[in-house]
């Protein structure tokens, strides 16, 4: 078995729990993933299982990859990822991994995704600076203000918060509660939000620190 599967963010909704509280949930399509390669320490320098997710049009896959999928005896996939195997039951080439078996009985998961890109963002949006008041004599707008002192140290300190590119980076959200597992539809409902847009790929793993 493996600890991690590839999935897709489907969107958010709310459901009622047993006590009648509305719980915000993110719906994730997790798997089915298929084993495309089994790597061994002796041959590949690492013990890992490469899994694939998402249906790819054969025409969109280049020849080397097409051969790679043919070797595993599976149809073409859009995302590939190396994951660490767990337990004594090693997955075999071509095996299908489903949420139902991998995340059965798991109470919390970590979700890794690519956050929504915000482009070149100013300091107010990017770092939560407050900007200047619109009235009462405020006069620097949404600028960051001073970036340092003059003669000492005579340079801008490293890591100074300034405007720049924001978002579109890999974000891990830890210990999200699994609200529901729908094995029939390969869906996982986790409490709270998950980085990225709808249709974005996410990695879902059993929570590391729990």
């Amino acid at each position: 078995m493996v600890k991690m599967l590839i999935g897709e963010k489907k969107g958010m909704t709310q459901i009622f729990d047993d006590s009648g509280t509305l719980v915000p949930v993110t719906v994730l399509q997790v798997g089915p993933c298929v084993v495309t390669q089994v790597k061994t320490l002796a041959k590949d320098g690492t013990d890992a299982v490469q899994i694939g997710f998402g249906e790819a049009k054969p025409g969109n896959v280049n020849k080397p990859l097409r051969g790679h999928f043919a070797k595993a005896g599976v149809t073409a996939r859009t995302v590939l990822k190396d994951v660490v195997p767990e337990g004594d039951q090693m997955p075999q080439l071509g095996d299908e991994l489903r949420v139902g078996s991998v995340f059965d009985g798991v109470s919390h998961v970590d979700v890794i995704g690519i956050s929504k890109g915000r482009g070149f963002a100013g300091v107010v949006r990017r770092h939560g600076f407050s900007g200047s008041p619109a009235t009462h004599g405020g006069r620097f707008g949404r600028h960051g203000g001073s970036i340092g002192t003059s003669a000492t140290p005579a340079h801008v300190l490293k890591g100074k918060k300034m405007a720049g590119h924001m978002g579109a980076e890999r974000i891990t959200v830890r210990n999200l509660e699994v609200v529901k597992l729908d094995a029939d539809h390969d869906l996982l409902l986790v409490k709270g939000s998950v980085p990225g847009c709808k249709g974005g790929y996410v990695l879902v793993r059993k929570a590391l620190r729990r």
Partner: peptide, 14 residues
């Protein structure tokens, strides 16, 4: 996976 409802329909199913 392809038979399953898409977009908002999937959320409605949930």
């Amino acid at each position: 996976q392809n038979d399953q409802p898409k977009g908002q329909d999937l959320l409605r199913m949930v």
